[in-house]
């Protein structure tokens, strides 16, 4: 091997320390140097960009079999963005794993030894992951929307970008998915296990609404708007949901939840033994 003799180490100690921009740079590298991350992001992108046009294609090919009422209920905005639930799931799982993957492999110890204040690691992960998700999802949502409209144009049910709620829904989908991803990074930080983190996400987004549904209807109706799933959905669709806050109001609430989970994550990250 190369170094059986004593090593010659260059004495370059410009004592520049750890800074948030440097940790961000490091997290950027970490994000893109894992095959699983690239695949998950690719999957989320394909789901968001491709599913809408696919739905449009199916609807147009079945046009002659659709009843008049079915033709009228085609919502060209929401159907063109129909992939967002799948994209959200992929981003949520990846969000959980950006943290739990480090705990699972032990990488977190290296990360904390490099940045012993710890919180910069969380902020950098949130920032890098959110920025990447937001950009990818905005682009994917536009592709999905425009692609689907081109297909809907066959039977003139297409809408333009300037249609009411169209741009709001396009950016809404991207914002909601991004906020979900951020919340899942925080959930992963709290739970530290991949399975547990994903279970928590599924519980909050898919099981909790079902549980609320079986409550007495007055109680259920009162709780419904506050559910994270309900709060986050409004902004991502053009069609108004029954029993919910306004799209931006709901999103603000959802961001509040994300912030609360992040604060808990930050406190635990700082306090716990790694």
């Amino acid at each position: 091997m190369s170094a059986t003799a004593s090593p010659e180490l260059p004495r370059e100690r410009a004592l520049q320390g750890v800074t948030l921009p440097r940790v961000i740079r490091s997290e950027w590298t970490k994000l893109w140097t894992l095959r699983s991350t690239r695949w998950s992001l690719f999957l989320a992108f394909v789901a968001q960009a491709g599913l809408g046009p696919l739905i449009a294609l199916i609807e147009m090919s079945r046009w002659s079999q659709l009843s008049l009422q079915q033709r009228f209920t085609i919502n060209p905005i929401d159907h063109s963005l129909g992939g967002w639930h799948l994209a959200q799931l992929a981003v949520a799982i990846l969000g959980v794993m950006t943290m739990t993957g480090e705990y699972h492999t032990g990488m977190i110890r290296s990360s904390f030894m490099a940045a012993p204040k710890r919180l910069p690691v969380l902020w950098a992960k949130l920032l890098v992951f959110s920025a990447v998700t937001l950009v990818l999802m905005v682009v994917a949502a536009f592709i999905g929307f425009l692609g689907a409209q081109a297909i809907f144009a066959e039977h003139h049910v297409n809408v333009a970008l300037g249609a009411p709620h169209a741009l709001r829904a396009i950016f809404g989908v991207a914002l909601v998915i991004t906020a979900t991803g951020a919340m899942c990074v925080a959930l992963g930080t709290i739970v530290r296990r991949t399975a547990g983190g994903i279970a928590l996400f599924v519980g909050v987004f898919f099981v909790l609404p079902g549980l609320v549904d079986i409550l007495p209807s007055a109680t259920a109706n009162a709780l419904q708007p506050y559910l994270p799933s309900t709060a986050s959905t409004g902004l991502a669709q053009a069609l108004a949901q029954p029993n919910s806050f306004t799209p931006w109001g709901g999103f603000a609430l959802f961001c509040g939840y994300t912030a609360a989970v992040t604060v808990i994550a930050a406190v635990l990250l700082k306090r716990r033994d790694a």
């Binding site: 590298t29 970490k30 140097t33 699983s36 993957g101 492999t105 032990g106 990488m107 290296s110 030894m113």
Partner: peptide, 15 residues
């Protein structure tokens, strides 16, 4: 203390 999915070089680079 290393993520098994990353290459050794990228691990060191990130640090």
């Amino acid at each position: 203390a290393v993520h098994t999915g990353r290459s050794g070089y990228n691990h060191l680079l990130a640090l």
